[in-house]
Amino acid sequence: MNLLRHGDSKFPEARVLCSSSGLGWRGIAAEMRSHPAGDLPPFVSSQIEITIAPETTPGASVSRKGWGQRQQTRVEKGTIWISPMGVAEDDIRISRYLPSIFHIYLSMDRLLALSDPEGSASASLHHVRYLAGVRDESIVQIGHALAEDLRNPSAASRLLVDSLTAALANRMARNYCDTGMPRGTAATAARDMRRVRLAIEFMRAHLDQPIGLDEIAAAVAVSPFHFARLFRASTGLPPYRYLANLRMENARRLLAHGRMPLAEIALSMQFSTPANFARAFRQATGMSPTEYRRQLS
């Protein structure tokens, strides 16, 4: 399922500035586009679309009509538009050139799979609401983190995106669907701590593999959203950051005790390029991998 086809079909004249194409995201895609002024063709949404204005464009507005609802919204920093799967929009107009607009495409399957907070009850969702002019700092921050990962993917990108997707799905289900999410009982503290320990063991055993939130949560038999929440509560870090720290720790060990080339270390620790590894290593240690190895030897 290529979620980015949604944007290509809906915005044929808009320029793609960056996108998640080729990054291996699951059930979610994102792209930054610049939009010319003018009318868009009629469109039936095949996925859930969350659109965020990262900056204010003075005098610009978006007018659209879907499900018989007419909406007109000024384009101001942090403004959010939500379009459900299946909505038919037959009148969309952008009044002025927009230099950057961030689009997130979320599959309904992913929303249903991730938005159950306790992993025990199915989502009871009729549809996502058709909304414009939404103000939600949580969604804006999720969008900002996704956009940053597009520009600078890291060794833990897959886990980061999975965690952000789970948070977005839960936020959408609780606040922008026509029914709320059921609230289950929390697991016991002892069970949660055991799950956290098992998750860390799983991470350590798979440092050289492209694991994501789904795989780790499945290994400890809990839903992705609930796992991300209990892991952060127990360790003080989100899973993707903890995994990134483990990989950096292992990279330092490989640099100190072996002759493995830097490029091989970078790839084994799931960095997309040696340059990304070098940048992350300098941020973590204050020196380049070569300088670190030279200092120790």
Rank of each mutant, 00 (worst) to 15 (best):
M1G: 15
R5S: 05
H6D: 05
G7D: 14
G7E: 13
D8T: 08
K10H: 12
E13P: 02
E13C: 04
G24Y: 09
W25I: 12
W25E: 12
E31H: 02
R33I: 05
P36I: 07
A37S: 15
L40T: 12
P41V: 10
P42T: 12
F43V: 11
S45T: 13
S46L: 11
S46H: 11
Q47M: 08
I50P: 02
A53S: 15
P54Q: 12
T57Y: 01
T57A: 08
S61M: 03
R70N: 10
T79R: 10
W81C: 04
S83D: 12
M85Y: 01
A88K: 06
E89M: 15
I101V: 15
Y105H: 11
D109I: 09
L111H: 11
L112K: 14
A113W: 03
L114W: 07
L114E: 14
L114Y: 13
D116H: 04
D116T: 12
P117F: 07
P117H: 07
G119V: 06
A121V: 06
S124R: 13
H127V: 05
H127W: 07
V128Y: 01
Y130C: 07
L131I: 10
A132P: 01
A132Y: 03
G133D: 03
V134H: 06
I139V: 13
I139A: 03
G143V: 06
A147I: 02
E148H: 13
D149T: 15
D149P: 04
L150R: 09
N152D: 14
P153I: 14
P153K: 14
A156Y: 00
A156E: 08
L160H: 15
V161P: 00
L164R: 06
T165Y: 07
T165W: 05
L168E: 01
N170T: 12
N170C: 08
N175W: 02
N175V: 02
C177Y: 04
D178V: 10
T179D: 11
G184I: 08
A186D: 14
A187L: 14
T188L: 00
R191E: 13
R191F: 04
R194G: 08
R195K: 02
R195V: 00
R195Q: 01
V196D: 00
V196N: 00
R197G: 04
L198V: 02
Q209T: 09
L213E: 02
I216N: 00
A219N: 02
A221F: 06
S223A: 14
P224C: 04
F225I: 03
H226R: 15
L230S: 07
R232I: 01
A233W: 06
T235I: 10
L237T: 06
P238E: 14
P239Q: 04
Y242K: 07
Y242C: 03
M248F: 05
E249R: 13
A251Y: 00
A256Y: 03
G258S: 15
G258M: 12
R259I: 05
M260T: 15
P261N: 12
P261D: 12
P261W: 11
P261A: 10
P261T: 11
A263K: 15
I265N: 14
L267T: 13
M269S: 01
M269D: 00
S272W: 05
T273E: 09
T273D: 13
P274F: 02
A275F: 11
A275C: 06
N276F: 07
A278V: 05
T285P: 04
E291N: 04
R293C: 01
Q295R: 10
S297K: 01
